[in-house]
Nucleic acid binder design. Structure first.
Lengths: 338, 338
DNA sequence: TGCGGCATTCAAAGCGATTTCAAATTTTGA
DNA sequence: TCAAAATTTGAAATCGCTTTGAATGCCGCA
């Protein structure tokens, strides 16, 4: 069923039918109703490719992911938020999986020249993210989930990682902890750097020196966290508290603590960053987990909003949001033993 | 940079340039090289919408997800596999997030009439899945991840859930367990039914009666599993073994066992189904987890393959694959106490 | 020399929508 | 009552590509 068929069926021109369906004013109300009713009854839908070619808009936003590590639980939560908002505008997400960084760059170039998507979401940026630079050079509208320092206006939404870590660390210090381990994300990512800055700020504001051996950088997997926590617990003096970068990390730390014959919340405190996974709830852990909490799904919803604003023409430099992070204290953190 | 511009730049017609780039035979080798080189140098890429309109192919496959529960860790692993294969063909995944079942149906209808995607992947089917029926009526090529019973040929790939559960249950029975709890997926899904069938088959083949109170159905979340396992452990006699539907489920069971003051692998055995998450490894749990193991990411890769075959014209009834499931015994399972 | 055959190239017709510009019809106002 | 204005409709151009069908030039062979 093409527009042409529908028009013939109605005894009208394509022009009029198109206008009727798209809500243009210059069409008789009776005609419009008749068109709408018939289109509905016949199940007419404009051909997506034709519509895109004619309008120049693709009705989709792009997400380029490096398969192995990036399409994990964080990304899927983020996508869930993103998609739920985009669905309201009948837009969808075009996911491109790439192997390498080079492929990722190529994917963006291709996206630009093939006009496959109207905008792109960029995530997990590095401190000076070349992809962001590339996207602005290519003039592809994009919104960054996170922050980066580049010489171009960037629309972004980020959470206050620095503030979150500063408060969590400060809280532990105030409880009397002196050796606090930071299981941070991979080096070079802005959020990792920000978290480290917050951590260091809390220490230095209380005049406490820091031990580089207590800071580690890794992926947020249960396994990596277990190994790191285990080896840190063998240090003498051992850390009395851990800051875990994600809930997966917390699971690994938890395991290491148990295996060392210690009890979380009594012998060792843990505060984890919680991106609010529906299937892994800090409140339902045992003991319940103290967290710095910020919903990544909500962030996805909002990033979708911002993307729509950017597409509507709002200048990138006016699109920036920094979200506060809650510190939620539960059983896994307390004063150090002794 | 349009084809027209490129053609003018080269002093050739659009026809020749198009043919040169698309590898048609009737073009001079020297010309082809010149075209290819210039296109590369100028960074020409065909406009995706125009190409799609002209060829009738959209270069994308669709995935419709109900936001909240479906876009979880399982789906993201599956997508990672799917996408890595599709990327080789420069195809991408169009993700549509919907709220309700009605929205999902509408999304398929829209996909059909707008020709937004070349094919669709259907997942987590029910025993008689109406969506599958709809898709075959709409004549949208699709591949099912899982199985369903409908009156139409369906291309599918599934794992042998029945066999897996039968073996796992049989193994526990042979170790001497008599009260084995099954924490199954939600009722109505084919995989849940298959697992229950396998479970029951193992019991009945050994002449052991089954207690319906030991079977539960829920989402695969840590929280639901915890609650269910907890209440089962309060039964008298309590189950001495658990079959956990996923690694998330296993985490909840693990927690319930601990909270009851019991030790996993000694007082209570657990065998979990493992979809092989890179961030949550059965080998790295404490104790290490016995599992029925089948990589969901690999399944994604293969489903992509099958989809391409279907698009190439292979009849759906010839596309069906049943994958065996490994039983991997580790520390979390052993003979019952006493 | 003339002609069929081959290798190349091109002009133009789609693909299915939107949109410009013009035409037809109805309403309005003096 | 009639011209002007407003309303409503339509023909045709356009978006950027592929593909059909025709044309061009060159070669070898009788």
């Amino acid at each position: 069923m093409r527009l042409k068929d529908l028009a013939e069926h109605l005894g009208l021109s394509q022009t009029t039918v198109s206008r009727a369906l798209n809500g243009y004013p210059e069409v008789n109300e009776a005609t419009r109703r008749r068109v709408a009713e018939t289109a509905e009854r016949l199940g007419y839908r404009p051909n997506a490719s034709a519509l895109r070619l004619a309008t120049g808009r693709s009705g989709a936003i792009g997400l380029v992911l490096r398969g192995a590590h990036e399409l994990g639980p964080h990304m899927s939560e983020f996508m869930a938020g993103l998609g739920s908002k985009l669905a309201e505008q009948e837009m969808d997400i075009v996911v491109t999986i790439v192997e390498s960084y080079a492929d990722e760059i190529a994917a963006y170039r291709r996206a630009a020249s093939s006009q496959k998507v109207d905008a792109v979401i960029l995530h997990s940026p590095t401190v000076n993210d070349e992809r962001a630079t590339l996207l602005s050079e290519l003039k592809i509208p994009f919104v960054l989930h996170g922050r980066t320092n580049i010489n171009a206006p960037v629309a972004w939404l980020d959470i206050d990682n620095t503030g979150a870590m500063e408060r969590a660390t400060g809280h532990l210090l105030d409880l009397g902890h002196r050796r606090i381990a930071l299981l941070n994300g991979v080096k070079g990512r802005t959020f990792s750097e920000h978290r480290e800055i917050g951590y260091l700020a809390a220490l230095s504001s209380r005049g406490i020196s820091f031990d580089p051996a207590l800071i580690s950088n890794s992926l947020f997997t249960d396994e990596a966290a277990f190994r790191l926590a285990q080896s840190m617990l063998e240090m003498r003096p051992a850390p009395t508290a851990f800051l875990a970068g994600s809930m997966m990390t917390a699971l690994g730390v938890f395991r290491a603590i148990r295996q060392a014959g210690l009890v979380m919340g009594r012998d060792v405190s843990v505060i984890a960053h919680d991106d609010v996974f529906p299937y892994l709830n800090a409140d339902n852990m045992f003991p319940t987990m103290s967290t710095t909490r910020s919903s990544i799904r909500q962030a996805g919803v909002r990033v979708a909003d911002l993307t729509l604003q950017v597409l509507a023409g709002k200048p990138a430099e006016q699109v920036r949001e920094l979200w506060p992070v809650e510190l939620v204290l539960r059983e896994s953190s307390g004063p150090p033993p002794g």
